[in-house]
Computed example of a mutant assay.
Amino acid sequence: MNSPDTLVTSRPKRIFPKTTGLTALWRHRQTLRVLVQRDLAVKYQKTVMGYFWSLLEPMGLATIYWFVFGVVMQVGARGDSALEHVDYSLYIVSGIFAWMWASSAISEATTCLTSQSSLITTMKVPREVFPVARVVARFAEFLAGIPIIVIFALLGRGISAGTFGWNLLLLFPAVALQAVLLTGLAFILASLNVLYRDVQRFMRLVTRILFYAVPSIYPLALVLKSDNLPEWAKSIYLANPFVVIVEIHHEAWIPGLNNLTWQMITTSVAISVFLLFFGRWMFHRLEPMVLKEL
């Protein structure tokens, strides 16, 4: 029989899963579905227009930027030559809806743990479900906006410009890549914000800067062909994976842009996948401290 002096008590070592948690998410897909439905229901409860609010904001922004950049500044007329054959409003609407998914997902995923602390500490589910649920919920709002983009294409010159062709298949890689990037960022920001509440305030500024740092309302060609920007500034700009993602969204609706290179796409994919794995690893490492703080 071992004496008390020989007994060693230690906390079991936490082992990082070799996957990104997709298996666990699949096992708890019903919980994920319920969280997404709950998020959408709570967000629009006691409102007359309901889910229409998810369309009103991007449509309002698109109208404002179309007037400022398209009518007043004539950006579409002196930007990428491909925009001469398509209404500039279609370019802005497709970019705005793509960016609103990113912006709202980043903002709400950052606070998803602190705003649901009692639920997180009582439910026996992988905590990764909560930030992922915010990304999926905002994706549902993005899907609701696709008919609006189709209407803009039909009312404009989308049919004659070849909008409704094989190029629409680019929406699938655009959505997949954006989901990977947003999920990785959600893991990182959600866990860090529990420990440092400055993160949510800082991200408000970052998302505003990022909005103008991606070609959602102006043609990417204006940046690529600009003589006022040094090459190192262009390299930093193109290192932002959101630039490629938003441009793929544009190319899905507007064929003929051809501003992307395989190097740009590969860089964006590599950064997005890295952030997914790194975010999952960071979430796993910080989880004990996060739960203690909650």
Rank of each mutant, 00 (worst) to 15 (best):
Q45V: 02
Q45M: 07
Q45L: 06
T47V: 07
V48D: 15
V48F: 15
M49W: 15
M49R: 14
G50F: 03
G50Q: 07
G50S: 04
Y51C: 10
Y51R: 12
Y51P: 14
Y51N: 13
F52T: 08
W53F: 05
S54E: 08
S54T: 04
S54C: 06
L55F: 00
L56R: 02
L56I: 00
L56W: 01
L56C: 07
E57I: 07
P58D: 11
M59R: 08
M59A: 08
M59E: 00
G60A: 11
G60P: 13
L61K: 13
L61N: 13
L61Q: 14
A62R: 12
A62H: 10
T63K: 06
T63C: 12
I64G: 09
I64P: 10
Y65V: 07
Y65N: 11
W66N: 11
W66Q: 09
W66M: 12
W66R: 07
W66L: 14
F67R: 15
F67V: 15
F67Q: 12
F67S: 13
V68Y: 12
V68N: 13
F69W: 08
F69I: 11
F69V: 11
V71R: 15
V71S: 14
V72T: 13
V72C: 11
M73R: 06
Q74L: 05
Q74M: 07
V75F: 05
V75H: 03
G76C: 09
G76Y: 06
G76E: 08
R78F: 03
G79Q: 03
D80V: 06
D80F: 02
S81V: 06
S81C: 06
S81G: 11
A82L: 05
L83T: 05
E84K: 15
H85A: 15
H85G: 12
V86S: 10
V86N: 10
V86E: 07
V86R: 10
V86K: 09
D87S: 14
D87G: 13
Y88K: 10
Y88D: 13
Y88V: 09
Y88S: 12
S89R: 15
S89D: 13
L90F: 11
I92F: 09
V93M: 14
V93N: 08
S94R: 04
G95F: 06
G95V: 05
I96S: 11
F97Q: 04
W99R: 05
W99C: 03
M100F: 08
M100P: 05
M100G: 06
W101S: 01
W101H: 00
W101G: 00
W101Y: 02
A102D: 01
A102S: 01
S103A: 04
S103Q: 03
S103E: 06
S103Y: 05
S104C: 04
S104D: 10
S104H: 04
I106K: 02
S107E: 11
T110K: 09
T110C: 12
T110W: 05
T111P: 09
T111E: 00
C112K: 08
T114P: 01
T114M: 01
T114Y: 01
T114Q: 00
S115E: 01
S115M: 05
S115G: 05
S115C: 02
S115V: 04
Q116G: 00
Q116I: 00
Q116W: 00
S117A: 01
S118P: 02
S118E: 03
S118I: 02
L119P: 00
L119N: 00
I120S: 03
I120Q: 02
T121N: 08
